[in-house]
């Protein structure tokens, strides 16, 4: 039986030009890795959006996995700018193998 441990998986939906703010915050709370995933279209409080490629309004998903403590630090750091920057942050428990890496 493979041993797994519980960690937090955090996803942040952000506009492409603002991704640096998110990844900087991830680095600053000591989370060692993150991945950026492309997204193509969606709908939210501000209406529908879709990938336009040229306008700087495209969105991406920043994905990271961390301990509950670091995840909480990250959420605390991003919470004050979630509304002003139009970020969407979600987190939930996941099982990971090699828990010491997160």
């Amino acid at each position: 039986m493979i041993e797994t441990v519980i960690r937090k998986r955090i996803e942040i939906l952000a506009d492409q030009p603002l991704v640096g703010r998110v990844t900087n915050a991830i680095d600053e709370v000591g989370i060692s890795g993150w991945t950026i995933l492309p997204v193509t279209s969606g709908s939210g409080r501000e209406g529908r959006w879709r990938e336009e490629r040229i306008t700087g309004a495209d969105k991406v998903l920043v994905l990271t996995i961390a301990s509950a403590e670091k995840a909480s630090s990250l959420a605390g750091r991003l919470a004050p700018i979630l509304t002003s920057h139009g970020f969407l942050l979600t987190m939930w428990d996941v099982e990971v193998i090699r828990g010491e890496r997160f």
Partner: peptide
């Protein structure tokens, strides 16, 4: 502009609504 300025405004004035400036210009 709808290429260079939107990106600069997203960085510098994230509170501004892209739905206004991009829709007007583009």
């Amino acid at each position: 502009s709808y290429i260079a300025v939107p990106a600069a405004m997203r960085l510098s004035l994230p509170e501004a609504d892209p739905g206004v400036y991009l829709t007007m210009s583009l």
